[in-house]
């Protein structure tokens, strides 16, 4: 049954990228356990505005777990202490009356803080731009059924494609590695005949861009996979390694 709880929030506040930043402590009262975590922040912000203070800036958009906009590192977990969901789907029934909740931005050199809990994830777009696509122009393509694709391959490709680009993998990784993100896209396309054609070039370009942007090296801890809101498997990382190494060995 739903009830109301009182909480102490420790929220990272940082006015600008250059600002040093620090934690502020806030008390919030009578939060319905049926509300979502972001609704808790809405309540906090309403409270702050009424006190004449600046509200906490945080990224969010669709609030149904698919856009990948929301982030937040909550009590030791990217997207908080529930499995296979994003912060916007995290509900307050996961917390108890009197709890203290730590709310922090993603931490990684690749994702600098812009303000409060908002980080800059442009690096992900840059990696996709390096090769995360099939090089076809609009028009002049064959019929959709011209090339049959085994259902298993299509399904596995879809598993990889369900990545929402939120960055939780990087946030969870002790190495600040983006391998799960990169491998999900490389693997999705390598599994399909349409994407296989340029798989070698794609793997090389995407990995090179990832390295240039300063992301870390994967040490196969598997933390990314555990914290991924879409449950993307690190088997895709193995496939990327395979694609990349065989491509490089042929150079």
């Amino acid at each position: 049954m739903e009830k109301n709880i009182n909480l102490t929030l420790k929220v990272w506040r940082q006015n600008s990228p250059k600002d040093k930043g620090g934690f502020e402590t806030y008390q919030v009262k009578d939060i319905s356990t049926g509300s979502s975590f972001l609704e808790l922040l809405d309540v906090l912000n309403e409270q702050l505005i009424n006190e004449g203070k600046e509200p906490v800036a945080f990224d969010h958009d669709c609030r149904e777990g698919i856009c990948g906009m929301c982030s937040l590192y909550i009590n030791g977990h990217p997207h908080g202490p529930d499995s296979e969901i994003t912060t916007c789907q995290l509900h307050m029934r996961k917390f108890n009356d009197g709890d203290t909740i730590w709310i922090e931005p993603w931490r990684s050199a690749g994702f600098p803080v812009i303000k409060d809990l908002i980080v800059d994830r442009d690096a992900f777009d840059k990696i996709i731009a390096a090769g995360g696509y099939v090089s076809v122009n609009t028009g002049g393509v064959p019929d959709g059924n011209a090339i049959p694709i085994p259902k298993d391959n299509a399904d596995e490709s879809m598993d990889a494609a369900s990545c929402i680009g939120c960055g939780a993998c990087v946030a969870a990784c002790k190495n600040g590695s983006a391998m799960l993100f990169v491998s999900a896209k490389a693997s999705q396309l390598a599994l399909l005949p349409q994407g296989k054609v340029e798989a070698a070039r794609r793997a090389k370009n995407m990995v090179a861009r990832m390295d240039d942007l300063g992301f870390g090296n994967c040490t196969n801890t598997g933390a990314c996979e555990v914290e991924c809101p879409k449950g993307i498997s690190i088997a895709h990382i193995a496939r990327l390694n395979r694609e990349y190494l065989s491509a490089k060995l042929q150079d």
Partner: peptide, 25 residues
């Protein structure tokens, strides 16, 4: 390199990811 990629900031609430072996970290 990985330390540099990780950045200097640490999580105040630590790392509570379950199912990751101590050895791997």
């Amino acid at each position: 390199q990985n330390r540099k990629a990780r950045g200097s900031a640490r999580y105040a609430s630590g790392n509570k990811t379950k199912g990751v072996t101590w050895a791997s970290q």
